[in-house]
């Protein structure tokens, strides 16, 4: 064997060893990922076990009750349907005003809560804390509080929806702001723009579709959520629903649920249409 050939063979040998070492390293990183997934699975299964999801006996008793109530729900009783039109319209206008309020609150908050636009880390942390607080008070509790503050009707519902949604909407807005392309912002800064000009002319045009997407999604969600708010006296179809439930009139309950279902479907359709237009 010539010296050159021997050298080549050695190189090839080295290459084989390093490929093996690489596979071993790859194995370790795959094992790490597998461990992470397995730990996650353990947490999920443990949660399901402690909450009784995995206990078939708990479900055994449920079937007769489900059968009973299903029978009572059928046929749906639409005789009072004409009286639901106005509350449904209330629910509709509540969801729109609530979402508008949320967007108005979220716009300034999101600028403070986005790493790329916040004036300082203090503002950033304060804004994030406030958003967490808004999101941790359920809209139902806010509904009860605002009924106490401003009385019954749609207004407390709008305020509850607006404040609670502002937490989530601002978080998503901030996310969009952080993911915006920094290059056009540099263009504006280099051209001598003020911070307001940068936000209005370079940032907003980039992220407007995402912001609209978030707002529309939240509107759809708020429509569904506002049906519950009626239950605490904050206006809308929820009040009718809870009244029927209280007197155990399941035929009327199913009729109201069908009406809500139709409206939710319409709202979703309108949302999808708006999204298409805003692309």
């Amino acid at each position: 064997m010539s010296a050159e050939a021997a050298h080549d063979a050695m190189n090839a040998h080295d290459a084989m060893i390093s490929h093996d070492a690489m596979i071993a390293r790859d194995d370790r990183s795959r094992a790490k990922r597998l461990f992470l997934v397995a730990s996650l699975a353990v947490v999920v299964l443990a949660s399901m076990w402690t909450t009784g999801v995995l206990d078939p006996e708990r479900f055994a008793d449920a079937w007769p009750a489900i059968a009973q109530i299903s029978r009572e729900m059928f046929p749906p009783d639409f005789r009072r349907a004409s009286q639901w039109a106005l509350p449904l319209l209330d629910t509709f206008t509540m969801s729109i005003s609530g979402t508008a309020l949320a967007v108005a609150l979220a716009a300034p908050l999101s600028l403070l809560a986005a790493r790329t636009t916040t004036p300082s880390m203090i503002h950033y942390r304060a804004a994030r804390l406030l958003l967490n607080l808004l999101r941790s008070i359920p809209e139902l509790i806010m509904g009860i509080l605002f009924v106490a503050f401003v009385g019954f009707g749609s207004l407390p519902g709008v305020l509850a929806l607006g404040l609670h949604s502002a937490g989530m909407v601002a978080k998503f807005f901030a996310e969009s702001i952080e993911h915006a392309d920094p290059k056009p912002l540099e263009v504006a800064r280099a051209a001598g723009a003020t911070p307001f000009q940068i936000i209005w002319r370079a940032l907003l045009p980039q992220i407007l579709p995402q912001l609209a997407d978030t707002a529309i999604y939240r509107w759809e969600y708020n429509f569904r959520a506002s049906t519950v708010l009626g239950a605490v006296g904050a206006g809308g179809i929820g009040f009718e629903l809870i009244s029927s439930l209280r007197i155990l009139d399941y035929a009327q309950v199913s009729a109201i649920i069908i009406c809500i279902f139709v409206c939710v479907t319409i709202v979703d359709g309108v949302g999808a249409l708006l999204r298409e237009r805003l692309e």
Partner: peptide
Amino acid sequence: SIAALDRVGLAARAL
């Protein structure tokens, strides 16, 4: 696959 990367001089970057 690593051998294929080796042929374009990128085996060391495989991971």
